[in-house]
Write a protein that binds this DNA or RNA. Structure first.
Length: 306
DNA sequence: GCATGTCAAGTTGTG
DNA sequence: CACAACTTGACATGC
């Protein structure tokens, strides 16, 4: 059975995640910084609990956790460790509760580090920062029980093969808790499924197939081909396959094909995916409303929810 | 109170 | 050559 995933935030539901900036933290003494960060980390974990309750109640099987759940964790000036935070004990307790709840309800949690994480970069400083951020995500994944840390191929720098070679070399520098969760996803301008699937095979990690990006950046593969390859990667790993879906706001022949629309047009959902045991993250601006609508349009609602 | 500019970070393609 | 887009909203500031 297909499980749909909600990405990061809610549209109508009053579940909110807090943030702070390095600039504002720098204006206060360290003690105050840590107090503020502590309050936000704990509040975000409580919000994550609420999010788990919501997806469980609505039979949505997956949730993508926003990267800065612990804001500015790896920042060179204001970064911190959890054991420095005044609410350290409560934070650890809350993480434990989240892991238990996630397991009990069989909710799949994932992380999607943002665009600054580039394992293929030729710049050592960029790679160093990426590794530090991915290690943070690995720690976070362990804390909350997430099994996927999904990134893109990054830049091309005029030579895809060289760039992917660097990505592979840098992957070897990551800890096991990151390596065992890392996945590569095709993007909308540089790396297509055909580019990444061989690299994933080579590195022994699964491929996350984004059909919207594939429609923006087609290669020789059909949707059926790419789906089959994706399924094969995940089967080798003995894990549930992972897809992304979104609907182009202005259409694929427009000047901004990659822009997301509020809801998913059910016609954009590949028929190849129907009936699979797989996770499909719904990238749509209307967030939980779009997930529920797609569920309904696909005929996935349980009797009691129609 | 509310409007608005800013937020650590990379890379690419567009106007 | 500057700037938006990427998965994208919340915070901080100033009126």
């Amino acid at each position: 059975m297909i499980r749909l995933g909600l990405c990061c935030i809610f549209h109508d539901e009053p579940i909110r995640f807090r943030q702070t900036t390095a600039a504002s933290l720098k204006k206060m003494p360290r003690r105050e910084q840590l107090q503020k960060l502590s309050t936000i980390c704990l509040a975000n974990l409580l919000s994550l609990s609420e999010a788990l309750e919501w997806v469980t109640a609505h039979e949505v099987g997956a949730f993508r956790v926003l990267s800065p759940l612990f804001p500015r964790f790896t920042h060179p000036d204001v970064g911190y460790h959890l054991n420095e935070l005044p609410d350290h004990t409560a934070i650890i307790t809350q993480c434990k509760k989240i892991r238990a709840r996630r397991q009990e309800s069989d909710i799949r949690l994932s992380l999607h580090p943002d665009q600054f994480n580039v394992l293929s970069s030729p710049h050592s400083e960029v790679v160093k920062n990426t590794i530090s951020e991915l290690e943070y995500q690995g720690m976070l994944a362990e804390c909350i029980g997430a099994d996927v840390i999904n990134i893109h191929g990054g830049g091309v720098y005029g030579d895809k093969a060289l760039a992917l070679g660097r990505l592979r070399d840098n992957f070897a520098l990551l800890s096991d808790r990151v390596q065992s969760r890392l996945t590569l996803e095709n993007d909308d301008r540089s790396y297509s499924p055909a580019d990444l699937i061989p690299v994933c095979d080579d590195m022994g990690i699964p491929f996350v197939y984004d059909v919207h990006h594939h429609r923006c950046l087609p290669d020789g593969l059909s949707i059926t081909n790419a789906t089959t390859e994706c399924l094969r990667c995940w089967k080798t790993a003995g894990r549930e396959p992972f897809f992304h879906i979104s609907t182009s706001r202005d259409g694929y022949d427009s000047s901004k094909p990659q822009a997301h629309s509020d809801y998913i047009n059910v016609k954009d959902f590949p028929e190849e995916w129907l009936g699979l045991d797989a996770t499909v993250d719904v990238e749509a601006k209307a967030k939980e409303l779009a997930v529920l609508k797609l569920k309904k349009d696909l005929g996935l609602l349980g009797e009691d929810m129609v």
